[in-house]
């Protein structure tokens, strides 16, 4: 039996097939890893968002006045024997190394007849002194893309 060069051809074919299989699976694996990181970051962002909401609620409950319209972020004030939330001006950066958090406090207008609220006052509407609109945003960067989670809620003085 004469065999010349068959082994080399077989190896070349095997390598080509291996290359083709790798070319199909490699992007899928990269996508899966990327997706896993995205989900992890989104979960951390959601926890940061939740923390901001709870802290803001407690701050407004502790003292209604003094919170003018503007951008804030929550911090913990440590005193003798106590720790408590407060808000300070400006946004918070490098949270958990990659997240930025901003809490925007705005006045809202209420229609005295219907009770409806909205950001800008229309005819017959006035700023509601007992309600504030809080919009919280957590921003982070991922693979060169900016992502964000936002939530808004109304806090009322009760």
């Amino acid at each position: 039996m004469m065999r010349k060069g068959a082994l080399l051809l077989e190896i070349v074919i095997s390598l080509v097939i291996l290359g083709m299989v790798s070319a199909v699976f490699f992007p899928a694996i990269v996508t899966l890893v990327k997706r896993s990181h995205q989900l992890k970051h989104a979960a951390v962002a959601a926890a940061i968002l939740q923390e901001g909401m709870e802290a803001t609620y407690n701050v407004f409950l502790s003292g209604w006045s003094g919170w003018e319209e503007g951008v804030y972020h929550p911090v913990v004030v440590v005193g003798p024997g106590t720790k408590h939330w407060t808000l300070i001006s400006g946004e918070e950066t490098a949270l958990e190394t990659r997240f930025t958090r901003r809490l925007e406090i705005s006045n809202i207008c209420r229609n005295p007849r219907t009770g409806d609220i909205r950001p800008n006052c229309g005819n017959g509407e006035s700023i509601d002194e007992y309600s504030r609109l809080v919009t919280e945003t957590v921003i982070w960067s991922e693979s060169g893309q900016t992502r964000q989670l936002t939530t808004s809620w109304v806090v009322a003085k009760i």
Partner: peptide, 12 residues
Amino acid sequence: IENYSALEDYPS
């Protein structure tokens, strides 16, 4: 557990 509220009745 830690408390970060200034209000005794409404802990955070």
